[in-house]
Simulated assay, not measured.
Amino acid sequence: MEPKDSTENEAYKGFTNSACPFMPCHRGITREFNCLFCYCPLIAYECPGPYTVFTDPRGMRRKDCSDCTLPHDGYRQSWHFIQKWLERPVLWDGHEQTRYRVARPEDAQPEP
């Protein structure tokens, strides 16, 4: 088995569960729908995706990322996007989003 960085098989970067009862859960996807990050690993961190903030019944501020398509838009693109943002994670401090979209790390730009 080759290490993932040298293999040409990129199947680990995503999949589409077309049998999911919630499909399509996000509108506006232009490439293959990636279900790998159904629960985004960036939920607890600063991220560029659009989100709103709400307070749960216990008084905890949380992100609602329902409008975000970044972890789902294309297998390779979303894989690289998540990997780049997890390289230097910054914990989210509960603030409202000040910008609708933050610039993505350069290497995480979608391919044309």
Rank of each mutant, 00 (worst) to 15 (best):
Y45E: 15
D67H: 00
R99T: 12
H72K: 03
D93M: 00
P50R: 02
D93E: 12
W79K: 04
D107H: 00
S18T: 13
K13H: 04
C35P: 08
W85D: 08
N17T: 05
R99P: 02
R27P: 08
E46M: 02
K4N: 15
Y100Q: 14
P41M: 08
V53E: 06
D73E: 08
F81T: 03
M60S: 09
M60P: 00
P21R: 05
I82K: 09
Y100M: 13
C47A: 13
K13R: 15
E111W: 11
Q77R: 03
E8N: 13
F81R: 06
R101K: 10
H26D: 05
G28R: 06
A108Y: 05
H80S: 10
G14Q: 09
H72G: 04
Y39L: 10
R62N: 00
D107E: 15
G14R: 02
T16W: 07
A44W: 08
P89T: 04
H80Q: 13
R101C: 02
Q77K: 00
T69K: 15
T7A: 13
C38G: 05
P110N: 13
V90F: 05
E32P: 06
Y12K: 04
P71D: 11
D5E: 15
D107V: 06
T69A: 14
R99K: 14
P50A: 01
L86V: 03
Y51V: 00
R99D: 12
C65Y: 00
Y51L: 03
A108C: 07
P110I: 13
P48T: 00
C40H: 02
R27V: 14
F15D: 14
T16F: 08
C20E: 13
Y100E: 14
Y51Q: 04
E106Q: 14
M1I: 08
P24C: 03
D5Q: 13
D93C: 00
A103Y: 07
P71L: 03
D5S: 14
P21S: 12
D64H: 04
R61A: 11
C35M: 07
E10R: 07
M1Q: 11
N34F: 01
K4S: 15
I29S: 10
L86W: 04
F37V: 00
K84E: 15
I29Q: 05
S6Y: 09
H26Q: 10
V53M: 00
Q97W: 00
E10D: 12
T98S: 12
D64M: 01
T16Q: 11
E106Y: 08
S78D: 08
T55A: 04
R27K: 15
P89G: 06
C47G: 14
L91H: 07
Q97C: 07
R62F: 00
Q97I: 03
P21T: 07
F54A: 04
P71C: 05
W85H: 08
R27H: 14
P41G: 11
Y39Q: 14
F33R: 09
T69P: 02
T30D: 07
Y75T: 07
C38H: 09
S6R: 09
N17F: 10
R27D: 15
E46V: 10
D73A: 04
E106I: 10
H80C: 06
T30M: 09
E2R: 10
G49C: 07
P24G: 01
P21N: 11
P105H: 05
L36W: 03
Q109Y: 03
G14P: 11
F81Y: 15
F81I: 03
F37M: 02
